[in-house]
Design a protein around this nucleic acid. Structure first.
Lengths: 190, 190
DNA sequence: TAAAAATGAATGAACGTTCATTTTTTGAAA
DNA sequence: TTTCAAAAAATGAACGTTCATTCATTTTTA
């Protein structure tokens, strides 16, 4: 019962991210969207900051669940790579509001207080895969940051362009072209 | 004389982007930073929205100047690519405040009114280079959006990590590894 | 001295948060 | 099962603060 209302409030924020944009969200709007009174929010969250931070934590754990369980120690690394990218892209395509929220949260005023370290937690699944690939000599022996940027960066930009309707991410393009192009950037060419 | 004050105000905003973050910038702060009174800003700009938008336009044109003049029709496309990437990365490394501003401007509330189209103007130099490369069969025949994301994305993520001190972008790494890795993502492998 | 530029206190709107009040839930007694 | 009072949950008007913007006044320029 208590959780129902808390979830309704969190979901309310998400809906508003798309409808009015991160920085126009007021507590009154959240209350209206969630079907509660303004004061009720403060029974479940200390304040706006905690509300936003909890939502972020929720999204991060959902994302990691979705992507990390594609990590099968025994599969060839290229397949792990493909599975992870696939899951990550699908996760955001199916949850535009998550993507928008994450993008904007990164630069939110709140962040500059304590959560700055959490900021790259979303990259941990990819990070793990990279290290395995380097050991197997399947992936270039480059600094982690370089490799990470080579798969996270394109995904991010693609999604941004897709959601801004600058391009259409068809399944075929993503699966047959995009993943391969990124792979060629990070793969060791022996 | 008039331009001095206008420039001082614009530069004031930029300084504040780094010091207090985009969303904590108030008109009073800008006035103090620029050494003028609050009301003075309104002699040069219609309001906060116009101020921010003019700053964006200023940065876009500076960026395009810096990067586009690396486009020499006669050079081999791989060299053009390298020169452009090099200029773009250098531009942002030397102007952290420009990078921060652009990143945050993209999702600013202002944007959702009219300037949304300008949003990918920064990518035009890269876009142009891609099309030439495709004609010469040096670059994969992929949709422009895919190619663009493959060079813009990594650069963006690298810079973000660099500025967040998650990695150190040494000149050597960038020049010897990063550019090549991105190139392999977009190059046609005949 | 007239015009132009600059000032900064005043204004009103918007926001996050609080808290006195109302509504709902609970569970023991009848 | 019904009753009812105490506890818990929910409400939303009110508060204090912050902010962008205005404009009567002052300062600078021509």
């Amino acid at each position: 019962m208590v959780q129902d209302k808390k979830q309704a409030i969190l979901k309310g924020v998400l809906k508003l991210v798309n409808r009015v944009g991160f920085y126009h969200i007021s507590m009154k709007m959240v209350a209206a969207e969630a079907g509660v009174a303004a004061g009720t929010i403060y029974l479940y969250f200390k304040g706006k900051e905690e509300l936003i931070n909890e939502l972020y934590t929720m999204i991060v754990s959902e994302f990691n669940e979705s992507v990390l369980d594609a990590y099968d120690q025994d599969s060839p690394i290229k397949e792990v790579y493909r599975a992870m990218m696939s899951r990550a892209v699908l996760f955001y395509l199916n949850n535009k509001d998550y993507f928008s929220f994450i993008e904007q949260y990164t630069y939110a005023p709140f962040l500059f207080k304590e959560n700055q370290e959490q900021n790259f937690m979303l990259l941990l699944p990819l990070y793990k895969m990279m290290r395995a690939g380097k050991k197997q000599k399947m992936i270039k022996n480059l600094p982690d940051a370089v490799l990470l940027s080579m798969v996270h960066g394109p995904m991010n930009t693609m999604l941004k362009m897709h959601f801004a309707r600058k391009t259409d991410l068809t399944k075929a393009t993503v699966q047959n072209k995009f993943y391969n192009a990124c792979w060629e950037a990070i793969a060791a060419h022996n």
